[in-house]
Design a protein around this nucleic acid. Structure first.
Lengths: 170, 170
DNA sequence: GTTGAAAATTCCCAATG
DNA sequence: CATTGGGAATTTTCAAC
């Protein structure tokens, strides 16, 4: 699965019947926490295996389930430092945005990037081993594209991180 | 798997032998992109099934692999709007931090939270259906805890989002 | 929705070179 | 590291209720 990018962050839901219920939410909540055999899942939600499996399949077909991935521990992977970079574009041209997009796509240390409202044009989340490595990322960015402003904030502590999306609005 | 929190964002790697090589990185890169059968993975990296399986097992035991999860599409889940909240604490007490921690932990819409260097004390990433829903989250926060400052930035576009951690520093 | 179960696949771990 | 083999577990699908 290509972990691609959503074109528009705010888009209304696709034309699914939208017919998902509380049980589907339970299924998603559990599977987002950790993958497990259908039999186990079925027992946890008090359902038998077959309908449970059918629901999962339906959620996959509807595109609600995007895929299954392995999560790597950043600390163990040697990238225990999270840095947020606030970026201001030098000019508001589509060509600059295109090159910016290619730039961040090519840097594995950049794990998230958003265009924002307000004075800061973009925010990037970067995973690196230490400040020195961050500086390398910084330098590789400014040597490949021009910026009006770049300012870094170091994350001193991670209070919460989850890949689990809220299911209350499904 | 409890998607818990890392106590310190910057911590040196644990006392693994650290003996991971380029093949291990390839394995992680592929599994972070998408889970697949060991047989498939083995073929992709040009290895036979058994040693490939052994490497995965070793990566799990070393804690490099944190778990396997299902990813849900935010758009399909009805939370296509990403909002970043910059928070300033009213006072720097451990009791406030404790309550803040409990607060964000109890709000599923808050998917990430970090304590930062600089003038902004904390940054939160929130997933909601729309501005109205964001306002609900905002109100539920200020009614349960006091803040010195809260300012929201709307994500107009998601340029990059990946759960894949860089493996170059493993 | 349920139970029960067969068929195909995948996982896990030997034995051997 | 490779190959082969095979039992256990899981997934997937299908009946019948």
């Amino acid at each position: 699965m290509k972990q691609a990018t959503r074109k528009s962050v705010s888009t209304r839901r696709g034309a699914d019947g939208g017919n998902f219920d509380e049980i589907d939410r339970q299924i998603l909540d559990l599977l987002q926490e950790s993958d497990r055999p259908v039999a186990t899942l079925a027992e946890e939600i008090g359902l038998s295996q077959t309908p449970c499996w059918r629901r999962i399949r339906k959620l996959e077909e509807a595109g609600v389930i995007r895929g299954r991935v392995t999560l790597v521990d950043p600390i163990e992977a040697g990238v225990g430092l999270t840095v947020f970079i606030a970026v201001t574009a030098p000019r508001h041209e589509i060509s600059w945005l295109t090159r910016f997009r290619e730039l961040i796509e090519s840097i594995p240390e950049v794990v998230e990037a958003y265009r924002l409202t307000g004075s800061t044009d973009y925010i990037l989340k970067v995973l690196v081993p230490d400040i020195q490595a961050y500086d390398e990322v910084y330098k590789s960015m400014i040597e490949r594209l021009d910026f009006s402003q770049i300012s870094a904030s170091i994350a001193m502590e991670e209070l919460k991180f989850t890949t689990a999306v809220p299911t209350a609005y499904l």
